[in-house]
């Protein structure tokens, strides 16, 4: 069966984010961009399913600017087989992304669709659930374990109270949590090989999707700063401050 993995190009998680002075957004000029960490976990899981003989082809898709090719290539270097870039310079909102991914998943007859639980730029945590709804299939969100057996997949999910396991019929959408796996590092020969793997280019219109969202970001502001704190020299001083200054114990 085929696995489809959706990867988003986002600011690297190590970069300190700065809000633009005119409050129009976040300054992304000259910042390091990477695969969203959760998408990287999704790629790793798909590659492991291939190595286990369950999946025969891993297709990676990204919706975004031309430069998102870099993230697709990075996924190919981790072991994915081919890529699809759906190129757009418009901001990609979850509903539109889900509609495009549905088009790809159906075209490819993907049986397992792996994605991140959240993209660390917009922090939406929506796209996988939306895709599953649009396709009318099951969803295993926030996965920390995935077991494919006999036309079904058992997904263990990280939920507020602990862990929950659900069984889904295939095809299904799975969104990854941090502890599903630890992605490998791409080795140099694989990075070289990835350059030759096929990468198709498409547009949202190819899937009949209009990228316009009914949402609009009016402004982006820095969060309120916390007033600077103090250093305390001893446990006694700490207790005194908590009792008599902060009044919290």
């Amino acid at each position: 069966m085929k696995a489809l993995v959706a990867v988003k190009r986002v600011i690297d998680y190590n970069v300190k984010v700065r809000v633009k002075a005119d409050n129009s957004g976040v300054d992304l000029s000259n910042t390091k961009m990477s695969i969203n960490p959760f998408c990287e976990i999704a790629v790793e899981e798909a590659v492991r399913l291939k190595e286990a003989g369950i999946v025969d082809e891993v297709i990676v898709a990204s919706i975004g600017p031309k430069e998102a090719q870099e993230q697709i290539r990075a996924a190919l270097a981790l072991g994915a087989d081919r890529g699809i870039l759906v190129q757009t310079d418009e901001k990609a909102y979850p509903l539109q992304v889900a509609k495009i991914l549905k088009g790809i998943a159906e075209q490819e007859s993907a049986e397992i669709i792996l994605m991140g639980k959240i993209a660390i730029d917009d922090d939406n945590n929506q796209t996988g659930q939306m895709l599953a709804a649009l396709m009318g299939i099951g969803q295993g969100t926030f996965a920390s374990e995935v077991k494919v057996e006999g036309g079904k997949v058992n997904v263990t999910r990280e939920v507020d109270g602990g862990l929950e396991t659900v069984a889904l019929s295939l095809p299904a959408v799975i969104t990854t949590d941090l502890r599903l796996n630890e992605p490998r590092y791409a080795k140099l020969p694989n990075i070289m090989k990835a350059k030759k793997k096929p990468l198709d280019e498409k547009t949202p219109a190819d899937f009949g999707v209009d990228m316009t969202s009914k949402q609009q970001i009016l402004k982006v502001t820095p969060p309120p700063e916390r007033a600077a704190g103090i250093k305390v020299a001893s446990v006694d001083e700490l207790i005194d401050k908590l009792r008599n200054e902060a009044h919290v114990i």
């Binding site: 600011i11 984010v17 660390i120 730029d121 949402q215 502001t221």
Partner: peptide
């Protein structure tokens, strides 16, 4: 957004 590094005002 961005792990609490920015606050967006969103209109729908």
């Amino acid at each position: 957004i961005y792990a609490g590094n920015a606050i967006a005002t969103v209109k729908t």
